[in-house]
Amino acid sequence: MAQQQSIKSASDAGPLRFWQRMSVQRLAGRLLLHAILILLGITFMVPLLWTLSTSFKHPGQVFTRPIQWIPQTLRWSNYQEVWTILPMPLFIRNTMVISVTALIGTLLSTSLCGYSFARLRWPGREKVFALVIGTMMLPGAVLLVPQFVLFRSLGWIDTFFPLIVPAWLGGGAFYIFLYRQFCSNIPYEMDEAAIMDGAGYFRIFWQIILPLTRPALITIGLFSFLSHYNDFMGPLIYLNSNRNYTLSLGLRMYQGRFGYDWHWVMAASVITVAPVIVIFFLAQEQFIAGVQLTGLAGR
């Protein structure tokens, strides 16, 4: 608690205390860091800035030279059109249902599995783990159609199940591997102490390991959410009715056969990306909470 307080006060300190606490050398270092981060940051923002700027343009202003970063008149109607030509609210709902449901499944199933691969000893573990990694190495293109036939035999075509259920069952090798790596750096003494107290493995997992791996869980949750949110091939293959379609399909519809209506594509892109930016912004705050927890735990 005390540690947390001190971090908080450091960042909230007024300018005077700030000066007092910083040596000249350190301050110079900070300024240099800011300068580099800002310059690089601008280049990283270019794609999104262009997207944002184009989303407010008249179709005739998209490719003017030199690039017009701020359109002379903001064309809000692009958003109005994009919102109504296709049923965007419906697409957003579908996308959210898929992404959130899959996110929860991924978190639960990958943390359980990753914990097992990192901290439990069982015969055959290394072989099974090799299999987990192996599934990442075979290009998915050859599994696509057999999997489609499989899901078709379950009657799952044109439902969300093929997009969600796999997340609840293992959730993907990438996340299991990631969680295993994070999990394997927590001192084993913590488990031993808990076992001495008579705790079962599930209690150790639930009460000790899960809280300590919070940064990893946030990371996995974020990646899982984004990968389902942006997925194009899955919805394309498994969904048939427009009323089940997702944002990524909607975005592609605006692009069209010859990819011309950039003002619409970009307005749809902004609608797609905006919630993700907010989610990311909030999620990354959680990393800081993660430090405090780990800090406490080390004690």
Partner: peptide, 21 residues
């Protein structure tokens, strides 16, 4: 809460879709 809501929503969304074929 999210899981509950999500699963409910998923089922609600999945049921009206016509069965394959």
């Amino acid at each position: 809460a999210m899981a509950g809501a999500g699963v409910l929503a998923a089922c609600a969304a999945a049921t009206p879709a016509p069965a394959a074929g």
